[in-house]
Amino acid sequence: MAGDIETRQKPILSVRNLEVSIRTAVGDLRATGGVSFDVAPGETFAIVGESGCGKSISSAAVMGLLPRAATARADRCEFDGQEMLTLSRREREKIRGNTISMIFQDPMTSLNPVYTIGNQLMEVFLRHKKGTRAEARDRAIFLLERVGIKNAAERMKAYPHQLSGGLRQRVVIAMAMMCGPKLIIADEPTTALDVTVQMRTLALLAEVQKDFGLAVILITHDLGIVASLADRVVVMYAGKIVENAPTRSLFRAPLHPYTQGLIQCIPSHGPAGADAPLHTIPGMVPSLIGRHEGCSFRNRCALARPECAVGEIGLTAFEADHGYRCVVPHQTLMAHWRETEGMKA
């Protein structure tokens, strides 16, 4: 896998200590607390975690697409050498849809129902490139064909409701490619699709990525997708990165108990396969209101000990590019992992 070499390149996106907080009726909510990661050019970088862990809000912060009630700060949030958080509105607009594109969760709703897909594809090109309508049209038809849509010229006149979910997500992928971006942020790109369509859409995304040599940030709750697509992974829990590793290393040696739980949750994981009962992690995600000490996962953790409740827990290096946020020594964590795996066999 190319990940090891490429991470040493100058990253296309570099985030240090990103914090997002949201004002709510009952107090400030710390959506993310000190998130740091680098994305290398051309790599697929996955951010994994369950609902509410702060993975989508981190990408929204990078893009400047936070809800009004939210504010972001970071020591660094650099895309292609440009600090994103301090850009003016106009400068940020020049980047969005141009050098960074986004793909959202639900293709049913991420296309505007009252305009043709041609209109929506051409719009982003005309906004950022100083081209003519004919050029925009050609580019749109070329990309629609590239993402496997037949009769592309004809389809340009279709409205979103006339296409199936899978086709719409292909249109969204084509739309993300219109200006030749360096980075695509795909936020749960297949969650709303049928399982059969999911795999085809992901394969298409990977294909397009390789063709055009761009980086992808894949935000998902599904480690199964990560295993087949991503070069590197960060696992987030309650607003913090709890583990950070190349994909192969993560699946070989998942250290943080939360990561271990997530891998257990993949339905097809382990020898028992699809017949086994679905695994779940007991307990609930803690509230993010106010300040918390210690590890947020300790209430759900089988290995919890008194130290877990104290102080700020740092990221420990297991290997050079594999870190985990846990007070338990990695030998104990690995022993625990082998034990749960053994129980299944």
Partner: peptide, 21 residues
């Protein structure tokens, strides 16, 4: 409560419960 992968909210944030609010 199950923690098997579940569909996510728009902004992906655990908000306070309705009763509290």
């Amino acid at each position: 409560m199950s923690n098997a992968p579940a569909p996510l909210d728009n902004m992906d944030i655990a908000l306070p419960t309705p009763r509290q609010q």
